[in-house]
Design a protein around this nucleic acid. Structure first.
Length: 866
RNA sequence: GCGGUCGUGGCGGAACUGGUAGACGCAAGGGACUUAAAAUCCCUCGCCCGAAAGGGAGUGUGGGUUCGACUCCCACCGACCGCACCA
C-alpha cells in the first residue's frame, strides 16, 4: 500500500488541462442524444468569486456531470452579468474605466472558476456588456416595440438619490433602493416601459404548471402579481366643482355596499385636485400626504388622515343615502381607480378611519349570534363567512351571493347611458420601467426628433455602442454629458436630433441570456430559433432565492415577449428551479471590532464554548451571518483551493446541510472533507494494489455483503442526486467507503473478496466523480484506466443485489421495539406471525396472556398487541 | 397584521407514502502506533436508573386519530423568510 498523500495542487491543474485538451465539456447543438440544459445563475463580475458561487456552481456541476454520464447531451454554459452600477462606482472612486474594470474582473473570476474544475462549455461564454451581446438586446427591444410590448409614458418613478437613477417597483424594498439602501423619492419622468402587465393573468396562471419550482417561489410571484376580482361602481356627486359629477370606485366587496360610510379619493385624484383649487387647507393636506408618501420612515408609522371635501356622494343602490367624500392619505392613485368607498365594519383601514372621524360603523355581514347588530365592533370583521343584514334586498344572502346580486343590479342600472357598475379584475403588477439614467448599461436604441418623435434606430445602425470617452466628474448620466454622442440626425428626416441617453435596467440583460447561450455564435440574430427551441426550456436552473421575484418574473415575461416577436416557440424559460441557501459563518468581535476567523482560537464546547484572539484577547462569538466583508466573516475560495484543493471545497459545500438551507462554514468541516479526500485515496490505492482476476463464479459471504453495500450505495446515491439532496448522497458515499475500508483492513485473502473490493473501489470513484472530479480522475488512472472518468457511463445497481433471501424485521410489543426476527424473504404473513408468537421476548412480554392481535406489515415490521 | 417555511443529541443533519428515531459528518473522550508530534487505525459517544444484563421517558408544548406518529389533525409557544395601507 502506498503511503503517499494525494496532492490536489498537482493533480487538479493536470486534469483540468486534460479535460480542456479533449474538449470534454464542449457541447454540439446537433448531437442526437436527448438534451439536458443545466444552468446556474450567471455571476456579476464584482472582482472575485465567493463561497456562495462555489456552492451554487458545485451543485450545478454535479447535475451536469451526472446527466452527461447518463447519456444526455448536456448544455452547461457560463457567462457574465456584466453591466451595472459598481463598474461606474469603481470609475468614480478609482479612475478606472468601467469597461476595463469589468473585463479585468471577468478575467480574474474566469480563472477562479476554472480552478474549480467545473464542467462548463467555455466556448459559449458571453458577457452582457459586450456589443456582440447587447446589439441583439437592442434588436429585441425594437421588435418588442413593433409588437406593441413597449410603452413610453410620463410616470411617477421611484428615484434613488444615491445611485441617481430610477428603480422599478420590484427594486424598492421597504421604501429603500434595493442596491443603495437609500430612501426612495418619487419623481415624475418620461420612461420606457415593457408591458409585462399585459401578461399578468398568464404569468399567474402558468405558475400552476411549474411543478418543478419551489412552492415558495410560486407563491411569492402569485402575491406579487396580486390578482383581485371586483366591481367598478359609479357614485354621483353633489357639490363638486369643475363639472365633476361622479366618482368611480373599485371594490372587491360590493356585498358590503350598504355598510358604506364614506367615499375616499387619493390626494392626486382629479376630484381632490379640483376641490383644492379654492381650499387652501386641502391643498396643504395634499402636500403633506405626498411627503409622507415618499419618506420611508413615514410609511412605517403611517397614520390614516382624511380631509372632508364637503362633497356628497349618492349611494348607487339607494339614492336617499348620501355619504361624505374625503381625500385620504392611504388611498393609492395608481391602484384601481384611486378612489374607494369605505365600509368601516368590514375593512380594518376603513374602521380606523371611521373611528377617527366619527363616521357610522354599520355591520352588514353577520356570522353567528355574537355578531348581533347592536353589539359594537372592536375591530373590522373582514371574514367572508356569514349572512347579509341591514342591507335591504341583500338580507339573508351569503357574501358570495350578495356580491353577485350587487354586480347584477348595478350592471343593469345605468346613468347617462353607462352602467352604474362593471365587473373588473385588477392586478398589483405594474409595467416594467426599464429606463436608467446610467452609462454602464445597454443603450436604448431610439433617436428623439422634434418632428418625428421617438424614432427607432434602423437595424443597419445597430448596435448603438457606448462611447469610450466619458467622464464621471459630475453627478448624473455621463451619456447625457457627452459632447457629441447624443447628437445624431433623425433617421427619418435627417434633421439634428437627440439620441436617447437612458440605458436599460440590467435585469433586461439577464432576462434572455439563457436563450443566447444556445447559439452564441450567431452574429446576425439574437437566437437561432430552431436551436433555441431544441435546448429550451432550461431543465434545471439553480440560483439564490433573492431572485424569486425580480429576475425570474422578468425572464418569464421576456420569454413570452420573444415568442410574440417570433424568436422562439416557448412560454416558460425554466422547467426546473432550485433555490440554494447561502453560505454563512459565525462572527467574532474583540474590543468592539470585527475579527476574522483566521485570527481566533476556539476554546471549549457547548455552553463553555468561547474564543480568544491568537494574541490572547477575549473574543465575543456573535451570530451566524451571511459572509460579508464588513463583518470580516468571509472565507476566500482561493485560499481554500490553495490549501485543500477545489475538490475538498466542493465536497464540503455539498455535505451536511440540505442544499436549500444555509450552510455554516466551519474550519473543522473543511478539514473533515479534506480528510475524506485522503481516506478515499488510501482506499483506492490499497484496492488497486490487490491482484484481481476475472469475475468469480461464487462469492464468499463477506464478498457478497460488500457487493450488496456497493449496489445499495449506487441506488441511493443516484436517487438522492436526482432529487438534489446532495447531503444525503454524500452520506451514502461515506457508508460505502466505510464498508470498503473495513473490508480492506480486515484482509483480502479470498479472490472473490478482492474482486468485490475492486468493484466497490471503482464504484466509489464513479460516485464521487460528479462532486470531486479531479480526485476521481486520479483514482481512475490508479485503477489503470486510460479513459476519463468524466466520460464513463453512470454505474447501474444490479437489482438482484438490492434484495436478499432473508429479511430482518423489527418486532414491537404494543408499539415498542422489543426484538427482531429474521425470516425468509418469501415468508407469508401467517408464517411470520407463527414465528413471532414463539419468540421468547414476545412470550415474556405477554406474561402468558393471549395476544390480542399480531400486525404483520410485509417487509417492514411486526407489531404484537397484548 | 396577512401568507409561508421550520423546530430531532454538544453541533450540521438523516428517517421512503404513518412502520427499528438519531444514518452520515463534525466535535468530544479512551486506546494503539511514534523518542515525540502530525497523520492513521481501533473503541465509546442523546438523556435518566443500573457494574452489567436490562429498564424508563424521549423528535418545541398540550391534546387527538391509529395496532403503531418526527411524519396526519387541532390549539399554543418560538425562530426565520416574504408581503404589507392593493380597496
Amino acid at each position: 500500500m502506498t503511503a503517499e498523500r494525494y496532492d490536489a495542487r498537482a493533480a487538479e491543474p493536470k486534469w483540468q488541462k486534460a479535460w480542456d485538451e479533449a474538449r470534454t465539456f464542449e457541447t454540439k447543438n446537433d448531437d442526437p442524444r436527448p438534451k439536458y440544459y443545466v444552468l446556474e445563475m450567471f455571476p456579476y463580475p464584482s472582482g472575485r468569486i465567493h463561497m456562495g458561487h462555489v456552492r451554487n456552481y458545485a451543485m450545478g456541476d454535479v447535475v451536469a456531470r451526472v446527466k452527461r454520464a447518463k447519456g444526455f447531451n448536456v448544455l452547461h454554459p457560463m457567462g457574465w452579468d456584466a453591466f451595472g452600477l459598481p463598474a461606474e462606482n469603481a470609475a468614480i472612486e478609482r479612475k478606472v474605466h468601467p469597461r476595463e474594470w469589468t473585463y479585468s474582473n471577468i478575467a480574474t473570476m474566469r480563472g477562479q472558476l476554472k480552478s474549480m474544475g467545473l464542467s462548463l462549455d467555455w466556448s459559449r461564454e458571453i458577457a452582457t456588456c459586450d456589443p456582440s451581446y447587447y446589439r441583439h438586446q437592442q434588436k429585441l427591444f425594437l421588435d418588442f416595440l413593433k409588437a406593441g410590448l413597449v410603452d413610453r409614458k410620463k410616470s411617477k418613478v421611484n428615484w434613488d438619490p444615491v445611485d441617481n437613477t430610477v428603480l422599478a417597483n420590484e427594486q424598492v424594498i421597504d421604501g429603500h433602493g434595493w442596491r443603495s439602501g437609500a430612501p426612495v423619492e418619487i419623481r415624475e419622468l418620461t420612461q420606457w416601459f415593457l408591458k409585462i402587465s399585459d401578461y399578468s393573468d398568464e404569468l399567474l396562471g402558468a405558475l400552476d404548471h411549474l411543478d418543478r419550482w419551489p412552492e415558495k417561489v410560486r407563491l411569492m410571484q402569485k402575491n406579487w402579481i396580486g390578482k383581485s376580482e371586483g366591481l367598478l361602481v359609479r357614485f354621483m356627486l353633489e357639490g363638486a366643482r369643475d363639472n365633476l359629477s361622479e366618482v368611480e370606485v373599485y371594490t372587491t366587496r360590493p356585498d358590503t355596499l350598504f355598510g358604506a360610510a364614506f367615499v375616499a379619493v387619493a390626494p392626486d385624484h382629479p376630484i381632490a385636485q379640483a376641490a383644492a383649487k379654492d381650499d387652501k387647507k386641502l391643498k396643504a393636506f395634499i402636500e403633506e400626504a405626498r411627503k409622507t408618501g415618499t419618506s420611508a420612515a413615514a410609511i412605517e408609522t403611517a397614520e390614516k388622515h382624511g380631509y372632508d371635501t364637503g362633497i356628497s356622494a349618492v349611494h348607487p343602490l339607494d339614492p336617499k343615502r348620501k355619504v361624505p367624500v374625503y381625500v385620504a392619505n392611504f388611498i393609492l392613485m395608481d391602484y384601481g381607480t384611486g378612489a374607494i368607498f369605505g365600509c368601516p365594519a368590514h375593512d380594518q383601514r376603513d374602521f380606523e378611519f371611521a373611528t377617527k372621524y366619527h363616521l357610522p360603523i354599520v355591520r352588514v355581514v353577520q356570522n353567528g349570534p355574537e355578531d348581533a347588530p347592536g353589539v359594537p365592533l372592536l375591530e373590522a370583521d373582514t371574514g367572508e363567512d356569514g349572512t347579509l343584514v341591514n342591507s335591504e334586498f341583500l338580507n339573508g344572502l351569503s357574501v358570495q351571493e350578495a356580491k353577485d346580486a350587487v354586480a347584477k343590479r348595478l350592471e343593469a342600472a345605468s346613468i347617462g347611458n353607462r352602467p352604474t357598475g362593471k365587473r373588473q379584475v385588477n392586478y398589483r403588477l405594474r409595467d416594467w420601467g426599464i429606463s436608467r439614467q446610467r452609462y454602464w448599461g445597454c443603450p436604448i436604441p431610439i433617436i428623439h426628433c422634434e418632428e418625428h418623435g421617438a424614432v427607432p434606430v434602423p437595424d443597419k445602425d445597430l448596435p448603438v455602442q457606448l462611447p469610450d470617452d466619458i467622464t464621471f466628474d459630475r453627478p448624473g448620466n455621463p451619456l447625457d454629458h457627452h459632447p457629441t454622442w447624443k447628437n445624431v440626425p433623425c433617421p427619418v428626416c435627417g434633421k439634428p436630433s437627440r439620441r436617447e441617453t437612458d440605458t436599460m435596467d440590467t435585469f433586461v440583460d439577464s432576462s434572455w441570456y439563457f436563450a443566447r447561450f444556445t447559439s452564441p455564435d450567431r452574429t446576425d440574430v439574437p437566437v437561432d430559433r430552431k436551436i433555441a427551441d431544441h435546448w429550451l426550456p432550461v431543465d434545471q436552473y439553480i440560483g439564490g432565492i433573492e431572485h424569486a421575484i425580480l429576475h425570474l418574473l422578468y425572464s418569464r415575461f421576456f420569454t413570452r415577449a420573444m415568442k410574440k416577436a417570433g424568436y422562439t416557440s416557448l412560454d416558460e424559460p425554466f422547467a426546473g428551479l432550485f433555490t440554494q441557501g447561502m453560505v454563512v459563518h459565525e462572527t467574532y468581535r474583540a474590543n468592539g471590532e470585527w475579527v476574522s476567523p483566521e485570527d481566533i482560537v476556539i476554546t471549549g464546547e457547548g455552553a463553555a464554548r468561547g474564543a480568544t484572539t491568537k494574541a490572547g484577547a477575549a473574543v465575543e462569538i456573535g451570530s451566524i451571518e451571511k459572509m460579508s466583508k464588513s463583518k470580516k466573516n468571509v472565507v476566500d475560495p482561493d485560499d481554500i483551493i490553495a490549501r485543500y484543493g477545489a475538490d475538498t471545497a466542493r465536497w464540503f459545500m455539498l455535505s451536511d446541510s440540505p442544499p436549500e438551507r444555509d450552510v455554516i462554514w466551519t474550519e473543522s468541516g473543511v478539514e473533515g472533507a479534506g480528510r475524506f479526500v485522503q481516506r478515499l485515496w488510501r482506499i483506492v490505492t490499497g484496492i488497486a494494489a490487490l491482484a484481481v482476476s476475472g469475475k468469480p463464479a461464487q462469492f464468499s459471504e463477506d464478498a457478497l455483503a460488500l457487493r450488496r453495500a456497493t449496489h445499495a450505495a449506487i441506488a441511493a446515491v443516484d436517487e438522492n442526486i436526482e432529487a438534489l439532496r446532495f447531503n444525503v448522497a454524500v452520506a451514502k458515499i461515506y457508508e460505502l467507503s466505510n464498508a470498503a475500508l473495513t473490508r480492506l483492513n480486515s484482509g483480502a485473502d479470498d479472490a472473490s473478496v478482492r474482486w468485490a473490493l475492486r468493484e466497490a473501489g471503482e464504484t466509489l470513484v464513479q460516485l464521487i466523480a460528479p462532486m470531486m472530479p479531479h480526485l476521481a480522475e486520479e483514482c481512475w488512472a490508479v485503477f489503470g484506466k486510460d479513459t476519463l472518468v468524466a466520460r464513463a457511463p453512470w454505474p447501474k445497481a444490479e437489482a438482484s443485489l438490492l434484495v436478499s433471501d432473508t429479511i430482518t424485521l423489527p418486532v414491537q410489543v404494543n408499539g415498542k421495539r422489543r426484538d427482531e426476527i429474521t425470516v425468509p424473504a418469501a415468508a407469508s404473513p401467517a408464517e411470520i406471525e407463527e414465528a413471532v408468537r414463539k419468540l421468547e421476548s414476545v412470550v415474556r412480554a405477554s406474561e402468558g396472556k393471549p395476544l390480542k392481535k399480531v400486525i404483520v406489515v410485509p417487509k417492514r415490521i411486526v407489531n404484537v398487541v397484548v
